[in-house]
Design a binder for these strands. Structure first.
Lengths: 335, 335
DNA sequence: GTGAAAGCGCTAACAG
DNA sequence: CTGTTAGCGCTTTCAC
């Protein structure tokens, strides 16, 4: 079934069929109904490729994320897909992994497939060296690029993020004011937002203990291997470090800290405090439940999509938007 | 930049350009290089829409899943996307929610977008009434439909799944043989695989306690709300039910059972046992860690993709493939 | 209000 | 080995 078949059966021209298909202005109600009837009767569906060729778009957005099975990114992808679909766009998903080369490859692939825009979900897409971010700038030369939880200054690149610096700064201050001085910062990412978080922690610690180097530990294993994280903390302790609080860049790390503390015989929160990040479902999975920072992912995604749609309609849109996070207090911190 | 521009600059015909682009057999190395040079120089990329129009495919597979932020489905989507990409296919993701109407709508949308095949990730797509599965059969009339963890008899519908019945049967037998007689089966899905699991449990219980109706509880709240699940179990207990073991259709439910038991003052596994399903990261999140059934998701996905690719190449492929699950014993069951 | 016709950019059959 | 040409199915001027 093509538009030709329909036009023939309906006794009109293909232009007319096309017009009723696209709800175009001027078609007499009579022919309109006639065409609609024929379409209905023969169950015709327009060919999206032909349409794409003519209009140069198939209303598709590329979503790139390092690992869509990661708890946080999965949620981000979910929200993004939902909101895109609600606006008539489809989502082409690309799980890129964490290497620059494969990110670049995926980016090119999406451009080849002629998506209307690309969303980079997660801060790990923006690197420290400008040169490593070239792949983003180059993509943006062709289509709008949206950054979720990262930021980068380049034409046609838009950022929506949570204020990770301030969130971590506040979390650290809270723990300090709870009377815990020996805090370990436990993190697993040097990404854009990873650095912001670390800086927030450092700033608060520097204020409380000027001139003193705070305790930080970088974990580089699997993002899901809680046992490995616990082992990592044990190793830190065994090397002689003393800490009675952990601020983690991520709920999984925080959960590992809770496990670590329990195994070491600390009472939580009396002897040991933990604060996580993302306010994911993991916060309810341990005992006591995890205090965590909610970075308002759904809001971020909503805003990101709104911005993207605005850009696609050629409206002027903010290059960068920042939302505040919020500490959700649960059982791993003192009241 | 179109193929015409390139052909002109290179002083050849568009057919020749097309040939080098598609690595076609016979092009002299000289012209080939010339064309390649021009392409390189002008940075030309083929237009995927035009290509799609001609070939009637854009090498894209539709993935439908109810909720890609669900721990298990997120992993499934991840594996599927990875494996598809490795074979040169893109993934159009559709999070459909759990209602039939929106599933049908998404299905039609994917077909409209002319994907080469559709993967239904998760057993919730297959309903009890044949009539509710019409949307699958109708889609399959046009393109191959793959079912992950579900099964349905219809032309052009292929199923890959884990043997949930046997897994649950074995799990139940194990718990019985550990000496626990009052077992509660806790589940949240009446889907295809949901019913298989329940049947496995019932079979084992019927063997052990002929004629006795086993304890089962259906939870219908949010899949992520652990507190609500715990409340549900408390309510069951308050209604007078006695149980010292829980077999859950899902790790999240199992985690809730662990929490419930801990709050009720049971020692695990001395006084209370729990077995979950999926062997997800949640198994490591509670104390003691969760015994769970591994249903070999990655294997299933790998096989599903292999099958799909075979079908697309018009090879004969099995309509239904079943893999065995495996119990992974951890701390919530006796040794 | 409707039709004719010119693309959109590519592939593939057919000639040479 | 290479070029010519006819589609693929739809949108969109431009006439009438």
């Amino acid at each position: 079934m093509t538009i030709y078949d329909i036009s023939e059966k309906a006794g009109v021209s293909i232009a007319t069929v096309s017009r009723v298909l696209n709800g175009s202005s001027s078609v007499s109600e009579k022919t309109r109904q006639k065409v609609l009837d024929v379409i209905e009767q023969y169950g015709y569906t327009p060919n999206a490729f032909a349409r794409g060729l003519g209009l140069n778009t198939m209303k598709t957005i590329g979503i790139m994320c390092a690992d869509s099975s990661d708890l946080y990114l999965a949620k981000a992808v979910y929200y993004i897909e939902q909101k895109l679909r609600a606006s008539g766009y489809d989502s082409l998903l690309c799980c890129t992994g964490y290497e620059l080369a494969s990110k670049t490859a995926s980016m090119n692939l999406l451009i080849t497939k002629k998506v209307d825009g690309i969303i980079l979900a997660g801060s790990n897409f923006v690197y420290e060296k400008d040169q490593d971010n070239r792949y983003i700038a180059e993509a943006a030369a062709q289509i709008p690029v949206m950054l979720l939880n990262a930021s980068m200054d380049a034409p046609n690149v838009y950022s929506v993020m949570s204020d990770d610096y301030t969130s971590m700064y506040e979390a650290t201050r809270q723990m300090l004011s709870d009377g815990i001085e020996d805090i370990l910062y436990f993190y697993n990412s040097q990404s854009y937002s990873g650095k912001k978080k670390l800086a927030g922690f450092r700033a608060a610690m520097a204020e409380a203990h000027p001139g003193q180097e705070p305790l930080t530990e970088f974990y580089r294993g699997s993002h899901e291997d809680i046992h490995a994280m616990v082992r990592h903390l044990n190793a830190v302790r065994d090397k002689g470090a003393r800490f009675h609080g952990v601020i983690a860049a991520d709920d999984t790390l925080a959960l590992a800290a809770v496990k670590y503390a329990a195994e070491a015989g600390y009472r939580i929160p009396e002897d040991f405090s933990v604060i996580g990040y993302n306010n994911s479902m993991l916060t309810e999975c341990c005992e006591p439940e995890l205090t965590s920072i909610d970075n308002k992912l759904e809001t971020l995604c909503q805003h990101l999509i709104t911005t993207l749609l605005g850009i696609l309609e050629e409206r002027e849109m903010p290059k960068k938007t920042v939302f505040s996070g919020e500490i959700i207090r649960r059982g791993t911190t003192r009241k």
